[in-house]
């Protein structure tokens, strides 16, 4: 059953992808379906990263994927997580237009539009228990844990293991394997 559910999902996604491609080509987007893929990647991080228990408000608290700044994903992020869960926790997508709107979340995609807010002094982001993700080419902050790299029309990852350690997250070595690693992966700061 579970297999079938998962199959249905890619079929839907494929349809969305095709739609995205059509729309993308119409909208002349730089990478067709780029954010659609990134949305999936965001969800995939939930599989390769372990969050400490205190990252959640409670045992029943949902797993929250937040988008800070302008939302580049549109509906694709909802599509990517629809019906999914992380362990027993339900997946929730939240959007924070501004930093002030920010609420505790486990994955936070920081759009480049949020960079000015973050760059402002005193606006320190509490990053404990939070996997911060951003586009690497246009980083909102140098210290996001994972950055998306666009390379030969492919998306690669750049992982700052130091930041991840600071955030109290454990990143699976499997994830590290295809990614560029920055920071000191083994030693303490």
């Amino acid at each position: 059953m579970a297999v079938l559910k998962r199959r249905r999902k890619p079929a839907a996604m494929l349809a969305a992808l095709l739609l995205g491609c059509v729309l993308g080509s119409v909208a002349a987007a730089p990478v067709p379906g780029e954010y659609q893929l990134k949305a999936i990647f965001l969800f995939n991080f939930t599989q390769f990263v372990e969050w400490p228990d205190d990252a959640f408000a409670g045992p029943q608290a949902p797993f929250v994927i937040g988008v800070l700044g302008e939302d580049p994903f549109g509906a694709t992020l909802e599509e990517a997580v629809r019906g999914e869960s992380v362990g027993t926790r339900t997946l929730v997508v939240e959007r924070y237009r501004h930093l002030a709107d920010l609420r505790p979340c486990q994955i936070l995609f920081i759009d480049r539009s949020a960079r000015p807010e973050l760059a402002a002094p005193g606006r320190l982001l509490d990053r404990r228990g939070m996997l911060t993700v951003s586009d690497a080419a246009n980083p909102p902050a140098a210290d996001t844990i994972i950055g998306f790299i666009n390379e030969n029309r492919r998306i690669r990852l750049r992982i700052n293991v130091e930041s991840a350690r600071e955030a109290g997250l454990t990143i699976s070595s499997k994830l590290l394997r295809p990614a560029q690693i920055i920071g000191n992966p083994g030693g303490d700061p």
Partner: peptide, 15 residues
């Protein structure tokens, strides 16, 4: 297969 999860998940064919 276990080793290739990340490569698949993040579509890294070379890996």
């Amino acid at each position: 297969a276990a080793n290739s999860t990340a490569a698949l998940a993040f579509e890294n064919a070379a890996d």
